[in-house]
Design a protein around this nucleic acid. Structure first.
Lengths: 264, 264
DNA sequence: CAGTGGTCTAGACCACGGA
DNA sequence: CCGTGGTCTAGACCACTGG
């Protein structure tokens, strides 16, 4: 069945709807996964076997498998271990916002440690503090010029040694100069009361939530699999006068969800 | 440079960090895009030209380009039109939640029409009503058995004729039997006051936000490009006694974001 | 060590869309 | 029309990993 000479590579053979063969294979495998014929954790047949089963070349099978991997349904192969059907949401970390009974008790993504402990998992983190120019995106949100200097506290958080998520907080340098914010240590209880003591009490905030595919840096830092998107969560905190902090959290989509609990 | 006989396919030639060639090419192109050497909307060089430029086969170039497409950075090719650098967020639809000054004025994703008009764009929708079994996921959230029957109002919304997003609302059939909820028309002002009139006033709700890659059905319905993840937004509405509604919204990640504005 | 998936080649034909 | 990307083949070598 080569593309040699006068032999068309069977379009419309078992394929009345003129779909490429690799998509037919992908659809078939996808259906087998969804009807639990191939349950989560199961071995996907080897590329060679699939090629034999569907009567096509290994590359065609690979196109199907890569498509499924990009949909997040199966893992990439690891040599002798082969591919497996991906397990759904092993450890979902919930980022909760509550507003209970008039008492505005709000817990944001920073309750990470609490939740980890409640799940019986050991949270660790690496903190890195630096000073950067705001740039257009962050400058707009913090209402400062693009060349304004910001303190950024970047943390990679881990659960039981496995990367969980990335969280960066930005503060205008003028607001936090000569404070513990510049110290690359955990600030207890958190930066919010520290800002309040400096006269910048946070009275409201805005959350923006987007999704996109991770960049290679994030893939490396957070050990994100093929076909797994991330949630980007931007929280801008405001005092009565101005925005005082911006937190950017990047969450691998297969291990996290956000949750808001609110009165109607 | 084939894999013929005694000739290793140049590992470690211009490549001291032992990265596959297609990743080197992808990294190079990614850098050119990020530094606006290839600005949004620009033509990506043809596969043939890239193969010549990098001295490799077209398939290797294709692997690099497919990787970039899966990251959402470039479009798929359309014959003579070639590939282009994808434009960022053409029309971002904001789903806002506000809670202002004690007066709990909350606007959810259902303010779609309002926002569309404010943006000067024409919203349309297709509504489809059916009755389904709850299943485990929806059953748990609505606190009903998995075989409980639910009314589902499914709508595909469009802006200026272009698919915007998918929104499905689920109601236990026993709560809404013989009401307008079963009528596949827009309910004015909305279902929430209708439920309230039936004795199921919504007093709080829970939002769950996840991200994943779209399934082929969603790709087709919403015309989602390669490498674009979706946001799945689940809102469970509660009366004083029980959950009364569940809304599931699927938003293509390249055209939407969620936004919450809350007091601290 | 045997076999897996990852990478890569050098071809081929096709549908499609811009000029 | 002609060149583009989409699909497909039939090979090859390699790194890695499980038994």
């Amino acid at each position: 069945m080569a593309a040699v000479d006068g032999e068309q590579p069977q379009r419309s053979e078992s394929n009345q709807y003129d779909q490429p063969q690799y998509q037919v294979i992908a659809n078939d495998l996808r259906a087998r996964i969804q009807r639990r014929d191939l349950p989560p954790g199961a071995q996907v047949p080897t590329e060679k076997d699939l090629a034999a089963a569907y009567g096509c070349s290994r590359n065609t099978v690979r196109m199907a498998l890569l498509a499924l991997a990009n949909e997040g349904l199966i893992s990439a192969g690891r040599a002798r271990a082969g591919r497996t059907v991906r397990r759904r949401e092993q450890f979902v970390l919930t980022h909760r916002v509550e507003d209970q009974l008039g008492a505005t008790r709000l817990r944001g993504p920073d309750s990470f440690g609490d939740q980890a402990h409640r799940l019986g998992r050991a949270p660790t983190q690496e903190i890195e503090v630096s000073i950067v120019a705001a740039g257009p995106d962050f400058g707009t949100r913090l209402e400062v010029p693009a060349d304004e200097r910001l303190v950024v506290r970047r943390r990679v958080r881990y659960l039981d040694g496995t990367p969980s998520h990335l969280s960066e907080s930005y503060y205008p340098l003028v607001l936090v100069k000569d404070t513990a914010v510049l110290d690359p240590q955990e600030i207890v209880p958190s930066v919010v009361p520290l800002l309040a003591a400096l006269g910048h009490r946070q009275v409201r905030y805005t959350d923006e939530i987007l999704t996109r595919m991770p960049d290679p840096e994030e893939v490396r830092l957070l050990e994100i699999g093929v076909g797994v998107p991330v949630i980007e969560h931007l929280r801008t905190g405001w005092s009565r006068e101005r925005p005082v902090r911006l937190t950017r959290t990047v969450l691998p989509g297969d291990r996290h969800q956000l949750r808001y609990e609110l009165p109607s």
